[in-house]
């Protein structure tokens, strides 16, 4: 990218985050490497879908990008700026979160209207009438009625609460929104409504999303690019259509195989991942996926694979290295 071009909406360089956790009073602390050497760029106006199982570091990555958590190493730039160097109010105008459980993140004692107004009020310099106008506008935008604006979160359905969280995230007209499993707690029918809403908002408002899910099928509709995360690393990243048409990493294929499409007669597939669960406090040597990989061979436990560039992105797998070597020979 040339120096004159606009900076990417999100840029992450060699990001790493380690947590020290104590299992007992006298046990020595263990290191949990939640995010381990992650780099990517998200161009303005596009959507990076981040997919992986629980515990692979998705939420930690989200919190690092939102500036809610300092990295152990590496850096995060949002529209070319270091969040650590910005004050909270400027940061809030730039980047906003939408979390999985709107119930936990919405104050139960406040009316919807006041919850959505909070970020504007916190800016400290907006006239009351302007705040009311902006709140009314954004509530309508996300499909909530005036009357729903007067209710409390407990009086709304799960999907309506997620609309409130989206309205609150958008009221400052941020450039970037980080959505951490925004539909994982919802029914499929409501999930579809929310995915459609997010896609429409991005198109109309020119937003950039980082969109996290544990289900590959869910990101397909919104993502322009997809990153597959495993134990803190991105093991495959590709332009969305290419990833769904030709997944390369064995883990990406397993994730895709676990999506149960409504096709009777196929049964539930054996996704081939075995029973060993990944543990970020105990990352296997070599390729960290090898204990669960149906295609692992001698090199996998011995040596960590390096990312290999593909036509549509990168893959971190020894099979790719061998394929590339074979092609070069």
């Amino acid at each position: 990218m040339s120096g004159a071009a606009a900076p990417p909406a999100i840029e992450v360089r060699d990001l790493r985050r380690v947590f020290r956790v104590r299992q007992g009073l006298f046990a020595p602390p263990r290191e949990v490497v939640a995010v381990d050497g992650v780099s990517f760029r998200v161009p303005a106006g596009s959507v990076l879908g981040v997919v992986g199982e629980s515990g692979c570091g998705k939420s930690t990555l989200a919190r690092l990008i939102l500036g809610l958590l300092p990295p152990s190493a590496g850096e995060v730039l949002v529209e070319g700026r270091r969040l650590a160097e910005m004050d909270r109010r400027a940061r809030a105008r730039l980047i906003q979160p939408v979390f999985q459980d709107p119930f936990a993140s919405l104050n139960p004692r406040r009316r919807v209207r006041d919850i959505v107004a909070m970020p504007l009020v916190a800016q400290g310099d907006m006239p009351r009438a302007e705040i009311e106008r902006r709140v009314a506008e954004v509530l309508e935008r996300v499909g909530l009625s005036r009357e729903q604006g007067d209710r409390f979160p407990a009086q709304l359905s799960g999907g309506q609460r997620q609309r409130v969280a989206i309205a609150r995230a958008l009221v400052l007209r941020p450039r970037v929104v980080v959505c951490d499993e925004p539909t994982s707690a919802l029914d499929v029918s409501v999930q579809a409504q929310i995915l459609n809403l997010l896609a429409e908002l991005r198109r109309d408002l020119g937003l950039t999303y980082l969109f996290i899910s544990h289900n590959l099928a869910v990101v397909e509709h919104v993502a322009t690019e997809v990153a597959v995360m495993y134990l803190g690393r991105i093991v495959e990243r590709a332009e969305a259509e290419a990833l769904f048409a030709a997944p390369r990493h064995p883990y990406t294929r397993a994730l895709l195989a676990s999506v149960l499409t409504p096709e009777p007669g196929l049964g539930v597939p054996d996704v081939g991942l075995g029973d060993v669960m990944p543990d970020p406090a105990n990352i296997p040597p070599g390729c960290r996926f090898h204990p669960r990989c149906p295609l692992a061979f001698a090199r996998c436990p011995a040596e960590a694979p390096v990312p290999v560039a593909t036509a549509a992105g990168i893959v971190e797998c020894h099979l790719e290295n061998t394929a590339a070597a074979r092609a070069a020979a």
């Binding site: 029918s189 999930q191 579809a192 995915l195 397909e220 509709h221 769904f244 895709l256 499409t261």
Partner: peptide, 13 residues
Amino acid sequence: LLSCVPVPGKVRR
């Protein structure tokens, strides 16, 4: 309900 289930490869972005 059936139309809400996302099916990989069948999505029109």
